[in-house]
């Protein structure tokens, strides 16, 4: 089954948050519903990390902040040639190995143009 990157929408004021807060960051409302963040985002800022955290093998590790039209997320960017404003999409996979566990989550890969 297809995994989707989910955000959390406050039922009182409509604000969408990622990650989840038990109380809405805008209105302190406590009723949240899960919503899909969507399939397309743009790169806001990035870094290519050369001093690697545990469980990442090959430098550089590209990390960045992406924007889904108002809601942002942070994660690994699957390219060595990041550009601010480039179009990306979330893809589920193994992120890194931490202790004796494989960590899975969404990373963001460029959407091929054309």
């Amino acid at each position: 089954m297809d995994q989707k990157l989910m955000g959390f929408r406050c039922k009182s004021c409509g604000r969408i948050m990622y990650p989840k807060h038990e109380r809405c960051v805008s209105c302190k409302g406590m009723n949240m519903e899960e919503v899909e963040l969507g399939n397309q985002c743009t790169l806001v800022t990035y870094t290519k990390l050369y001093t690697l955290p545990e469980g990442i093998e090959m430098p550089p590790l590209t990390l960045g902040i992406v924007d889904f039209g108002g809601v942002r997320a942070f994660g690994q960017i699957a390219t060595d040639e990041p550009k601010i404003g480039m179009k990306l999409r979330p893809v589920w996979g193994k992120l890194r190995r931490l202790g004796d566990k494989d960590i899975y989550g969404f990373r963001f890969e460029p959407v091929e143009s054309g």
Binding site: Y18, P19, Y46, I56, L61, I65
Partner: peptide, 25 residues
């Protein structure tokens, strides 16, 4: 953030670098 940042491999230098990049732009 334990799940939204840490698990993805963030480090403090990475956060500072992303801020620097925004300032450059």
């Amino acid at each position: 953030h334990p799940t939204a940042e840490y698990l993805h491999g963030v480090t403090l230098p990475a956060l500072a670098a992303m801020l620097t990049r925004l300032y450059m732009e």
